[in-house]
């Protein structure tokens, strides 16, 4: 995970802040104000909906001495005991859909 990549929720809130600040500017054309408002309302609704969700993953990292792990090698909590230290590659591809939520 790169440090400059913020959580999608954080990105959403940042965009919302941008939109709000832009809407406060009287100089913007009306057409832009309308599309900004629409975007803002849509975004805040989807962020609110996102907040209501309880989904999250709890993973356990297998032990590694040198080579960095990828997240796909980590197993959900409670199932990690079935993974031996050698069977590093998990076939399970983890959905990253939350990155494109907003």
């Amino acid at each position: 995970m790169k440090r400059d990549q913020a959580h999608p929720f954080e990105k959403g809130l940042e965009r919302l802040e941008e939109i709000s600040a832009r809407l406060d500017d009287d100089a913007i054309p009306l057409e832009e104000a309308i599309s900004l408002y629409e975007e803002g309302v849509k975004l805040s609704a989807s962020l609110t909906e996102y907040l209501g969700k309880a989904e999250r993953r709890i993973l356990v990292a297998p032990q590694r001495d040198a080579e960095p792990l990828t997240i796909d090698e980590c197993q959900p909590l409670g199932t990690e005991q079935t993974v031996t230290k050698k069977s590093v590659r998990s076939k399970k591809t983890v959905s990253r859909e939350e990155d494109s939520l907003f």
């Binding site: 709000s20 406060d24 009306l30 104000a33 309302v41």
Partner: peptide
């Protein structure tokens, strides 16, 4: 607090747009 800040953003959006209109 995130829900609260979302709510206040909504208000700000609404106010800003109403003012602009």
């Amino acid at each position: 607090s995130l829900a609260d800040s979302l709510l206040s953003y909504r208000r700000r959006l609404h106010d800003g747009f109403t003012r602009r209109l």
